[in-house]
Structures are given as structure tokens and as C-alpha cells.
Design a protein around this nucleic acid. Structure first.
Lengths: 147, 147
DNA sequence: CTGCGTGCAAAATGTTTGCAATGTG
DNA sequence: CACATTGCAAACATTTTGCACGCAG
């Protein structure tokens, strides 16, 4: 079940001119297998629970290498902590105001993203952060009632 | 020229139940007068260049108080640093990939923001970050040519 | 074998806290 | 006058750096 995944991961690393180390493999495999957007610390904990050990510094090092190689996205949301995402397909994010749940959203903006927004600025990408209530928190709020 | 502004700032603080101190006044006045989205440190430097002194801790303290009172917005963009914005009108942000310029954008999403995006989630606000080249960097890029 | 990548621990941010002094209302 | 707010400095959390060893290629 993982032979293909393993080769895909290693192949992509090599294509980027990176050496393949157990730490790097573990981090990318972990990121590829989650829909969450873990912080460096969460990644470190998860990876270390399965592999010899990846020191904090190496986790950061690996994440930066993967980011620079374009293999993961580094995103900043409401707190001053970097989060990482192996989902390279265009997508946006939803944050639950009540519980902090962080989720991907497939919804697409407008018919097309704007290419020019005035002032001579040219847009080539965009990112949307939607806020509101997730299903659970929405249910809780409506059963509490308005008053 | 500032008597009205002064009274507006003080009035809004009082309406929020806050005491008006020179530090608070200076921070809010500074934020109201800039279109940039300064970090706490930038605010501290700017404020201290004109007023007795506002300690680092007080700058943070004031910013949090203003944020909690809904008088400024705290935003996180590409770096793990909080930025502050006194522009309470709905707007989005543009970041120049080349020079890091940070700007407001009046452009509005779609016809309407989405209210439901599936999964039982309900959206009540959204924020868009547009990336690309600002006018200056765009000019520089096109004069360099495609190679 | 060469040298990149790792691990460790210390340094460098950016932000928060505790307590006494101060100034606002 | 009372109490919120300030200032200072130390605590904190997260991320970065320097150097010696090990492993990938």
C-alpha cells in the first residue's frame, strides 16, 4: 500500500535536488496523510512518535527545505504560528470562531480571481480565509437559543 | 485640525468604557493616520518618537485593549507577527511578492460572500489576501524582460 | 569518500506576565 | 480617592543559528 507513496515522495524530493533522509521522509509522509494544518511542534511530536527522533531544529530545517522546494505550503492564520499543508491544489481555509477548527474549503472565489485590482497592481494568486461556525458549534449555538 | 479627531478618538474610547491615557491616544491616533499595517514594534517606535514614552508592554497592552474594544483589527499575514489596522471598513489585503508592500484592496469578492460552504459550516465573515506585483515591481519585471 | 543534513543547546525574536508607582475619572 | 493603567524586567514560546558527527549519494 505504501510502496507507491514512498517512491512518489522520494522521487519528488530527488527531482527537487534534495537528499532523502528519514526525517524528511517522515515529515512529508505525515503531512501528506493529514488534512489538518499542523504547526511545526505538532509535526515534531507526530514524527517522533514513529521515527528514531527528529530534533526540533531538524523539523524546522526540513519544513523550510520542503517549503523552498515547493512541496508544502507554509500558512499563517490567526495566531503567530506557522502551519504546514501538503495539499498543493488551490483551496481556501475555514476557521471556526468558536472552537478554532481549521478546515479546507473547496469553494471557489467569484467566477475568476481578479487579475488587476487597480493601482497598477497585478494579482497572480489569492487566498481566502472564511470564518464562522463549524457544524458542531453551529448546532450548539442554535440549541442554546438567542436569549 | 485635530480637535475633532481628538474628540472622536476620546469619545470612542469612553464609549467603550476605556480610560483615555496618552499612550492609548497616541497609539490610536497613529493607527488612524496610516494606511500601513504596522507591527507592535513599529507602532512603539512611532509613538515613542512623539510622546513621553510608551513601554513595549504598554504598547502590547494598549493594542490588546483596542482590539478587544473592537477599535482596531489584529491581522496575521505572511510572517508570524501581529499587524494592526484601524480601518474598520470591510476590505482585503494585497501583498507584493517582490517587495513585501502591504496594501488595502477595495475589491469585493464574488457577488456575495458565501453563507454556507457545505459540511454544515456557516460563514459569517471572510478575508482575502491577494498576492502579486505592485506597480513598481511590475514595471521593474517587465523592463527586465522574459529573458 | 564528500559534503549535506542532523542533533544539541544557546541565541534571537516577539509576546506575556507581576508588582509597585502613576495618573485618570 | 480608588482603581485601572503604566513601566520595567524577567519569564515565555517559537524559531534560528553554530558546530561536530553521521549518513546519503
Amino acid at each position: 500500500v505504501d510502496k507507491k507513496l514512498r517512491q512518489s515522495i522520494e522521487g519528488r524530493m530527488r527531482a527537487a535536488g534534495m537528499r532523502v533522509t528519514p526525517q524528511r521522509f517522515a515529515v512529508l509522509e505525515y503531512l501528506a496523510g493529514t488534512h489538518e494544518h499542523p504547526t511545526a511542534e505538532q509535526i515534531g511530536v507526530a514524527v517522533n512518535s514513529r521515527f528514531p527522533t527528529a530534533s526540533r531544529a531538524s523539523v524546522y530545517n526540513v519544513l523550510h527545505a520542503l517549503r523552498d522546494a515547493g512541496m508544502v505550503h507554509e500558512i499563517y492564520l490567526d495566531d503567530a504560528v506557522a502551519r504546514y499543508d501538503a495539499n498543493l491544489a488551490p483551496h481556501h481555509h475555514f476557521i471556526c470562531r468558536a472552537c478554532g477548527l481549521l478546515d479546507d474549503v473547496e469553494w471557489q472565489i467569484a467566477p475568476n480571481p481578479p487579475s488587476a485590482i487597480g493601482g497598477g497592481r497585478v494579482v497572480d494568486s489569492y487566498e481566502v480565509i472564511l470564518r464562522g461556525l463549524c457544524a458542531d458549534c453551529g448546532r450548539a449555538a442554535s440549541s442554546a437559543g438567542p436569549g
